[in-house]
């Protein structure tokens, strides 16, 4: 009973955050709404009994990525900018089509994957993820670290050229 109330509250919060992130006209508010949405997703992970993923969602997505976005906004726009960018119909349409395609692709992939039923109690994601990253999934893991390395070097190169 109480669980259900909290669960639907969290779902509503996540959807509200996602909606505000794309609909508000002030770019700083968009970033904050994104934080709200990501926090909702982290709460949903707790409902799935995966505290580790919830904590990582907060540390990585709120603590690093959202903060990087907010930094970029603060450095590039004047404080409390009141002027709002005019709505561009073509842009809206374009992003809607891309988002629909992405959603369709993800939905297909979700349907095709067979999900192993969780047979054990408690949170085993920490050990399972650790083992998988160094055995079965080592290639994607290394590929991602290579991408990150390239991104760091690119950022250094951009920052060096004055």
């Amino acid at each position: 009973m109480m669980e259900n109330i909290v669960f639907f509250g969290v779902v509503a919060l996540t959807l509200l955050g996602a909606f505000l992130a794309v609909s508000l006209r002030n770019v700083f508010y968009n970033a904050l709404a994104l934080v709200l949405c990501l926090f909702g997703v982290a709460c949903l992970f707790i409902f799935l009994n995966s505290e580790f993923l919830a904590v990582m969602e907060v540390i990585v997505y709120i603590g690093a990525i959202s903060i990087a976005i907010i930094f970029a906004i603060m450095l590039s726009t004047p404080m409390l900018q009141k002027t709002e960018a005019p709505q561009d119909r073509l842009k809206t349409l374009r992003s809607f089509v891309i988002a629909a395609l992405l959603f369709g692709g993800l939905f297909k992939a979700l349907q095709k994957t067979t999900w192993p039923a969780a047979g054990v109690d408690g949170d085993y994601s920490l050990h399972a993820i650790g083992r998988l990253l160094l055995t079965g999934q080592v290639l994607p893991f290394e590929a991602v670290s290579l991408v990150l390395l390239v991104a760091i070097m690119g950022a250094l190169l951009l920052a060096e050229k004055k």
């Binding site: 580790f52 919830a54 907060v58 540390i59 709120i62 959202s66 404080m79 949170d123």
Partner: peptide, 26 residues
């Protein structure tokens, strides 16, 4: 199971609060 990582994750939310404080004060 995540123990103290939970506390560190929560401090990340306070950073957002600090940002909001700095920005909204104008």
């Amino acid at each position: 199971n995540v123990g103290f990582l939970f506390a560190f994750a929560l401090t990340n939310i306070t950073f957002i609060g600090i940002f909001i404080a700095g920005w909204s004060s104008n």
